[in-house]
Computed example of a mutant assay.
Amino acid sequence: MASKRVVRKLSLCMILLLCLSGCWDSSDIEDISFAMGFGIDASDDEQEPIQLTTQVALTKKQGEQATAQQGKLFQNVTLKANSIHEMVRGLSLQLPYPILTDHLETVVINQDIVTDYDLFILLDELLRDNITRLSPSVVISAQQASDILATNIDGEITSDYISAFFTNETSTMKILPKVRVGDVTANLISGTSVILPKITKDKKTVKLDGAGIIRAKDNKLTGFLTDKEVEGVNWLTGEGAGGLLNFRDEKGNTIIYEIQHYKTKSNPHYKNGKLTFDVQITAQGWITEDWSLTSNNLSEKYVDKLERLAAEEVVKIVEGTMKKLQQDYKTDVVKFYDSFRIAYPRDYQKMQKDWDNYFADADVKYDVKIKIVNTGDLVKEGKPK
């Protein structure tokens, strides 16, 4: 009996050792090409009208073999074809290691390609691929996407660097929330217009610079917004994470208000074929900079004045943004359709296919209330504590 127990124990140990032997088909991480970014441009070849730049992270081994003399942490490979998938597979002819896209961080799309082609078509391969995630950020560029991804920033992989910008959304209202591949396609499938952050190459680096608008009518680029108008979009959607409001007093002195938190609500009204939105914006925050050097910066009267001036500035910003969206582009990227869909579901079903035109003709009224809860670490006389 004792010998049988010993045999059983030895057998169990052998089985456990086999389980701990690792994956038989595993690959060394240095023998894999990880795609970190895609750049999609228009090509000058009619037979191969699409150009795809793939940014691959270099491991130490690959860096040595790929001659990274400039200290780059990446290798870019640019191909031309008439389909995205063909170009992805074509990487096998130029890279000695299998290409994986499950670590993709950013997709940069040039304005020319998305002016000529449906954005949904350009992203179709990413959606069908069961390896590529739907989380990569999507940005648009006026410059060639290949030039954007070629930017060599010390110690950085460009596509990862771009994706990291969106962690700064609590610092400024001029940054849109990250727009992911899944977000874009969900909007396009539902027939709603899309706003994409715009990336620009600036000397030896890249930066966020406004946004591009993809209209629902044909899923193509219709125009751009400035960073100030992006600020207006964030105020109108309530999706910003915070930031600063820069306004002036009656003498032209600069005042800076830091937004602690804010809330936006759009209330739709639809009667006799006329669409109206009442937009209510409330915010709380504090004054972080005051160039007026007034000695009464803690007085109730002075705070009331700043709250009024700040509210007037917000109205000015959102009115300018809405003018561009309604008159120039006729696209609802501030998601007014959502509140209307909830309030008037049957009417929205009838209006959905032509929603952007209804949005363009709507009257919009604003009620902005700014609350200053703190004016900084100053005593009433304006002297430091």
Rank of each mutant, 00 (worst) to 15 (best):
L10D: 00
L10E: 02
I29F: 08
E30G: 12
I32Q: 05
M36L: 12
G37H: 08
A42H: 10
Q62L: 04
M87W: 04
L104Y: 12
E105N: 13
I113Y: 11
V114E: 10
L126V: 07
T132M: 07
R133N: 14
L134Y: 13
S135T: 15
V138T: 06
Q144F: 13
I148H: 11
T151V: 11
F165L: 07
E169N: 13
S171A: 05
T172D: 06
M173W: 08
S190G: 00
I213Q: 05
F224E: 15
K228S: 15
V230T: 10
E231L: 03
N234S: 02
G238Q: 11
H261M: 03
T264F: 01
N272A: 12
K274F: 08
K274L: 14
D278Y: 00
T282D: 11
A283T: 15
Q284F: 05
Q284T: 13
W286Q: 15
D290L: 10
L293H: 05
E300V: 09
K301D: 12
Y302L: 07
E307C: 13
R308W: 03
K323V: 05
K324C: 10
Y329A: 12
Y329F: 15
V334K: 01
F336G: 10
D338G: 11
S339F: 01
F340P: 00
Y344W: 01
M351P: 02
Q352Y: 00
Q352F: 00
D354N: 15
A362R: 04
D363I: 01
N374I: 01
E381Y: 03
K383N: 11
